Simulated assay, not measured.
Amino acid sequence: MVVRGNFENSLQDLQAKMKTMSDLAAASLEKSFEALKTKDVELALKVIDEDEVVDDLDTEINHFIIWLLAKEQPVARDLRKIIGALKISSEIERIADFGVNIAKSTIKIGNADSLVNISILEKMKDLSIKMLQKGLDSFLNGDIALAKEVGELDDEVDQFSGDAYKLMTGYLKDHPEETEHMVQLLLINRYLERTADHITNIAESAAYLIKGQMYDLNS
């Protein structure tokens, strides 16, 4: 069964690349938010520069998957796993992009003191990183319980996002002169909410692999 053994080794290589990419995306979110809290424009610029590594790894994964499909011609569950990996790598790339977007908003805010308490945004960031770890582990380990946990955590992020939106728009109503700054914070709120949505898509791909049917974890 050398052929099957080679295929399993290729899958492990693919999964290792996905884990590396996921770690890089999580680091992008962590660093960009740290830059926001500390008003560190240099760190924000570093996040933007490092995104090229994620993009290159996404391309590498895509090419690896195309090679694997052509070489192995997998069927059934193996095919679902490879197609799921392709979808998930795309989701992870978008998550890293949101880290870049947060960094860009941080640069636009500059050295200005935060106009509102951003602890809600930090909770959203922390939850998103936790969701990303659970979502990928669900896919790699075939754990449907982790996929469902991601959906539950997404509900928490949505609640925090709604609270942050009310806080920020309420402040903006009373301080229209701070529009530019508040718009950037509102954008960051949106980026984090969308990050959680993309991670939920990862969990849905994991659930499909495990159960062979589509799940809507956003409902």
Score class of each variant (00 low, 15 high):
residue 1 M to H: 11
residue 5 G to A: 15
residue 10 S to H: 09
residue 14 L to N: 12
residue 15 Q to W: 10
residue 15 Q to V: 05
residue 16 A to W: 03
residue 17 K to V: 00
residue 21 M to F: 07
residue 29 L to W: 02
residue 32 S to E: 06
residue 34 E to C: 08
residue 36 L to D: 00
residue 36 L to K: 05
residue 42 E to Y: 03
residue 46 K to Q: 08
residue 49 D to S: 07
residue 60 E to L: 08
residue 62 N to A: 11
residue 66 I to E: 02
residue 66 I to T: 13
residue 67 W to S: 08
residue 68 L to Y: 09
residue 69 L to R: 09
residue 70 A to T: 13
residue 74 P to C: 10
residue 76 A to Q: 06
residue 76 A to C: 08
residue 79 L to Q: 03
residue 80 R to N: 04
residue 86 L to G: 03
residue 86 L to C: 06
residue 89 S to E: 13
residue 93 E to T: 04
residue 96 A to E: 08
residue 97 D to N: 04
residue 102 I to K: 06
residue 102 I to P: 02
residue 113 D to M: 11
residue 114 S to R: 05
residue 114 S to A: 11
residue 115 L to W: 07
residue 115 L to C: 00
residue 119 S to E: 14
residue 128 S to F: 09
residue 129 I to C: 02
residue 129 I to N: 03
residue 132 L to H: 08
residue 136 L to Q: 03
residue 137 D to H: 14
residue 142 G to A: 14
residue 142 G to S: 12
residue 143 D to Q: 15
residue 148 K to C: 02
residue 148 K to G: 02
residue 150 V to Q: 05
residue 150 V to E: 04
residue 153 L to P: 00
residue 153 L to V: 00
residue 153 L to M: 09
residue 154 D to R: 15
residue 156 E to S: 12
residue 156 E to M: 10
residue 157 V to A: 02
residue 158 D to P: 05
residue 163 D to E: 15
residue 165 Y to F: 15
residue 165 Y to V: 11
residue 166 K to G: 00
residue 173 K to V: 07
residue 176 P to F: 11
residue 177 E to V: 09
residue 183 V to F: 05
residue 185 L to F: 13
residue 186 L to K: 04
residue 187 L to W: 14
residue 190 R to L: 14
residue 194 R to C: 01
residue 194 R to H: 11
residue 195 T to K: 13
residue 195 T to P: 05
residue 196 A to G: 11
residue 197 D to H: 13
residue 197 D to V: 02
residue 198 H to T: 12
residue 199 I to K: 08
residue 201 N to M: 13
residue 203 A to H: 10
residue 205 S to E: 14
residue 210 I to D: 00
residue 213 Q to R: 15
residue 216 D to H: 13
